[in-house]
Amino acid sequence: MTGTRTAARGQTGKLARKRKYIRRHWPLYLMLIPGLVYMIVFKFLPYYGLQIAFRDYNIFSSTSPLRAITASKWVGMKHLNKLFQSSSFATVLSNTLIINGMRILFLFPLPIIIAILLVEIRRKRYRSLSQTAIYVPYFFSWSIIYGIFSSVLDSFGLVNQLVNSLGFERIPFLTEPNIFRGVLIFTDGWKTLGYNAVIYLAAITGLDPQLYEAARIDGASKWRQIWNITLPGILPTIVMMLILKVGHILDVGWEQVLIFYNPAVYEKADVIQTYVYRIGIGKLNFSQATAMELFNSVVAFILIIGANTVSKKTLHRSIW
């Protein structure tokens, strides 16, 4: 209000105004305190802990695991070099890329198709019932879904009953490395299809009905309407979702793997985070595990920033 005086007084006026704002609205800053404390302790302190990737971390070298960080010997790139030379690094990285690449390839188009088709179902009751049925699994935890599918896929389960009745050998879905990835993809689709479809559904219902009206008058077939109105209309949503998926290709879905997998399928299913868990927490090889995490975090960071840049350029909006 008193802000726009002369240019000479501008700088000091601004400062004074800021000070006045803080003095008047100090409760706002009080409100920020819990969140800031949370971020400093539980988010920024772990960043500090990442340095153990460059040390021979020994948790018992001091009374506190945190003080042990600086008490451990600095070894520079030792662990990162070891990591890049190890064969498990290549395995784990390629598993992560293959499994999550397959997720995108098979599961990305599906909810778009289902959303487009759901709109075409004219019986309202059937539509909302089927939408609910597909949507509910999204709220099941991975443990529950593991419980469901370890039942359906075990030797006496529904699928193997079918396989057996068709005259084939029973298939050990959860312990056969070559099939296990398929199980991961399928169950992921089972959980997330409805949720993702609803996102596209929201975009489709936001489209202008007059466009369809005009197309119908012009004699455009339903297929043409889908191809020329619906798809272009929801393209921004599609692109945005795809960018997000690619941006998170290194760090999604590992909790599912951790719950579903077992030693029999490690070679095909071990992803970055599950590997970090096994060697870090499992074998107490903290430094080696953190080196892996550091690599993962840096690449993920680059991917996400890249994804956001692409999103800004193509869609003119930021993904967060």
Binding site: Y47, I52, G280
Partner: peptide, 30 residues
């Protein structure tokens, strides 16, 4: 709000960069 940009920057960092499993575990233990 004075300092709003700074606080939002903090949020963005937290959102994009993850400290990771092992440092978090050590922190909890500590």
């Amino acid at each position: 709000l004075v300092g709003r940009k700074f606080f939002i920057l903090l949020c963005m960092i937290v959102m994009v960069f993850n400290g990771g499993m092992v440092p978090n575990y050590l922190l909890m233990r500590g």
